[in-house]
């Protein structure tokens, strides 16, 4: 009985070792580049955790279909995603305005945006997962811009609707 239990334990340990070896081996040849076995930097070293910003002004959400129904010269689309995401693809004519929960847009930035919009309505699209479109739109409303909307579903929903 004991030898049988030891046999099962031994084979289980061998199975675990083989699977672990397969995982580390696959990581070494992974086409996209593997993960270092030991993290180069701590998981929390470069991250600053902040509470989600409080939304004081509630801008109006708009469905992507409604936005596309408007003439292009009546709106200015503002892309709140990161510069990299914007560079990877964006709505035609959209201006990049990366939103960060740490740094609220300053008065000068809002004035510049207002000057670029002239009399057009501002429609903010962002990353739906973090709600950056809604948050930036709220900041712009608070900053005094009169007609600001945000896209329901974010920039990706707008791009999907356009197809």
């Amino acid at each position: 009985m004991l030898s049988r239990i030891l046999g099962v334990l031994g084979r289980t340990a061998l199975l675990a070792a083989l699977c672990a070896g397969a995982g580390i081996g696959y990581n070494a040849i992974r086409p996209a580049g593997g993960l270092p076995l030991v993290a180069q930097a701590g998981f929390y070293d470069n991250k600053v955790f902040v509470p989600c910003p409080e939304v004081l002004s509630e801008p109006e959400p708009l469905a992507p279909a409604r936005i596309l129904a408007w003439s292009a010269d009546s709106i200015l689309v503002v892309d709140a995603r990161s510069a990299e995401e914007y560079a990877a693809g964006h709505h035609a004519g959209a201006v990049s305005f990366p939103y960060s929960a740490l740094f609220a847009p300053g008065e000068e930035e809002i004035r510049d945006l207002s000057a670029r919009a002239q009399k057009r309505a501002i429609v903010v699209c962002g990353d739906e997962d973090i709600g950056s479109g809604r948050l930036l739109a709220a900041e712009l409303v608070e900053g005094g811009l009169p007609t600001v909307y945000y896209v329901e579903g974010g920039c990706l929903a707008l791009a999907r609707e356009r197809k």
Binding site: L15, A16, L18, C19, A20, A22, G23, I24, Y26, N27, G34, L35, P36, L37, V38, A39, G42, F43, Y44
Partner: peptide, 29 residues
């Protein structure tokens, strides 16, 4: 690895090793 790290149990030096090996044990088993 980030999911493992959020539990704040393992030291950072062991997080990646577990993230690389555990899923393969799940697959094999």
């Amino acid at each position: 690895a980030i999911n493992i790290a959020t539990y704040q149990i393992l030291p950072d030096s062991l997080v990646n090793v577990l993230a690389l090996t555990l899923p393969w044990l799940e697959l094999g088993a």
